[in-house]
Design a protein around this nucleic acid. Structure first.
Length: 504
RNA sequence: GGCGAGAUGGCCGAGUGGCUAGGCAGAGCUCUGCAAAAGCUCGUACAGCGGUUCGAAUCCGCUUCUCGCCUCCA
């Protein structure tokens, strides 16, 4: 039984889809006006693992991850220039060119982490009619008002009927006091907590669309309500995003969806049944964020170009690094932590290769109870950890607990075998499934292999020569070969059954 | 100021009222021509002060500190 922490109720709940075996999941994707950074990666990755695990459990998942390419406003939602537009103007580009570039970059950089593409990836700009329709319905239901060509959500009215602030644990009075300083200056809004559903565009604005109210552009939160409603329905299972989106974005989303889809007096539906939020990545204890200027982009990780990076890191290392922490904990970035992850992951990869190489046929079974138990309980142990609010950290810990058994079985060159064949084969399958399918750790082949057949052949010749030299106790030659190869980052390991080589 | 999350051994990070994850680094041993890899063993940590309890890192209170949201943010 999968349990998920629901931000709405602030506790772990048993996951029960509204219409099993179908699951609808919506994740707030990126606002595409900059390079994808580690924070984007954590969100995409958290829900990638949830997506994978739901599929592993047999659910049929519709996974929607949007692209916000209409642009958010730069300041309090009342004034300011569209971020996309700002960039477009500065670079003499069509705003859509900017959006396209960053959308492509996002997908490239995120996919490198072996993150699966969502089943639907809708763009806000492609859903302007849906957003307009939704605004019209909200107006019709009496939860919005028109002011000077713009449309605002009436938070006070909504609060009276539905109650505002349930997700973030706020009340309207607090929000007023919090935004007191922004009150001044002839606002079109009736109440400072009100937010824009549609904004009239000033003449210099590049991205604008026709609407019943003005030539303008949609407000900040409406795209997610419109797109999730369109593809997942008025009520669906899971809505995800970063912790920092809880307020105001998700709070507003819930309000819009309720105000649109449910007439006053009806049950409070809350848009999604489970609201799941991942925590932030920190850098020296501070939140890493685009707007804070301390974000390291995924690209920079891959090529090691950021000044804080001591080396380049493979995408898979970053994936593993992030999964070593629970998604609801903050995760502090550091080179030493990343390097530790790199080494740890390598051990898993080597163990997997050994596991695949183990032969059980024609061997005498002499079961070692500890080994047998370790392998037999592997799958259910991992499932138990994943069921507990997606505890990838403990799942990974369980993987490491199986490693010594794999290594010892591999090293055993006797005719005996310490685990029953049924248990062993079941484990072999589970080990692959948990690591590759659920955690999405695509393990690269590390030893005795190269895409180049020529190199493979040459290495075979070289290692054979060295082996012969060692047999003759000509260690001068054998050590020379090992040392020289080491200069090309090729490492040799002498094992009972021959020499293994790896390219670092 | 309001709301919320934390403070875990050298570092990173899990965690349940008692059986005290895991990784990296470190130490010793085994294996080995030497390495490497692997295996075995080891550090006995939970911010501070009280309280509840037979027993708390885990529950409660207070203190100190850190961080997040309240403005765009994954």
């Amino acid at each position: 039984m999968l349990n998920l922490y629901n931000t709405l109720t602030r506790q772990k709940e048993v996951f029960e889809p509204i219409e099993p075996p179908f699951v609808g999941m919506y994740l707030c994707g990126p606002t595409v006006y900059g390079d994808a950074h580690l924070g984007h990666a954590r969100a995409a990755l958290t829900f990638d693992v949830l997506y994978r695990y739901l599929k592993y459990l047999g659910y049929k998942v519709r996974y929607v991850r949007n692209i916000t390419d209409v642009g958010h406003l730069t300041d309090d939602g009342d004034q300011g220039e569209d971020k996309l537009q700002k960039f477009a103007k500065a670079n003499k580009l069509e705003p859509m060119e900017v959006a396209q570039k960053y959308t492509d970059d996002y997908n490239t950089d995120i996919s490198a982490l072996n993150i699966l593409r969502p089943t639907i990836e809708p763009r806000a700009s492609g859903h302007i009619p849906e957003q307009i329709e939704m605004i019209e319905q909200i107006l019709k239901n009496g939860f919005a008002y028109i002011s000077n060509g713009s449309v605002y959500f009436d938070v006070v009215k909504y609060n009276e009927v539905f109650g505002y602030g349930e997700l973030s644990g706020r009340n309207i009075e607090e929000i007023i006091s919090g935004s007191r300083e922004n009150l001044e200056g002839g606002s079109e809004k009736r109440h400072p907590a009100d937010f824009a559903l549609w904004k009239q565009a000033d003449p210099s604005h590049l991205m604008k669309w026709n609407s019943p109210w003005s030539v303008g552009f949609p407000g900040w939160h409406i795209e997610c309500s419109a797109m999730s409603t369109k593809y997942l329905g008025q009520k669906y299972d899971i809505h995800g995003g970063g912790l920092d989106l809880i307020f105001p974005h998700h709070e507003a989303e819930i309000a819009q969806s309720n105000a649109c889809n449910h007439a006053p007096g009806f049950e409070h539906y809350g848009e999604a049944k489970y609201w799941v939020h991942n925590n932030m990545i920190t850098l020296d204890g501070q939140k890493m964020g685009k707007s804070l200027g301390n974000a390291i982009s995924m690209r920079q990780f891959y090529d090691g170009s950021h000044r804080l990076l001591e080396q380049a890191y493979k995408p898979i290392t970053i994936r593993f690094f992030i999964l070593q922490a629970h998604y609801r904990s903050t995760l502090d970035f550091s080179n030493t932590a990343l390097q530790a992850a790199e080494k740890a992951l390598k051990r898993i990869g080597e163990a997997m290769e050994r596991l695949d190489a183990i032969q059980t046929e024609n061997r005498l079974i002499a079961v070692n109870e500890d080994f047998e138990k370790n392998l037999a309980t592997f799958r259910s142990d991992c499932e138990a950890q994943m069921d507990d609010d997606m505890n990838t950290a403990r799942t990974i810990a369980r993987i490491f607990e199986a490693l010594p058994v794999i290594n010892q079985l591999y090293a055993d060159r006797s005719n005996g075998f310490a685990v029953s064949p049924t248990t062993f084969e079941a484990f072999r399958a589970a080990f692959h499934t948990i690591i590759e399918d659920v955690l999405g750790l695509k393990i690269e082949k590390v030893s005795n292999g190269d895409s180049d057949k020529l190199i493979d052949g040459l290495m075979q010749v070289i290692t054979q020569i060295r082996l012969d030299a060692r047999k003759d106790k000509n260690f001068k030659v054998s050590d020379f070969i090992r040392d020289e190869l080491g200069k090309f980052s090729i490492k040799l390991k002498d094992t009972p059954q021959g020499t293994e080589w790896t390219k670092e």
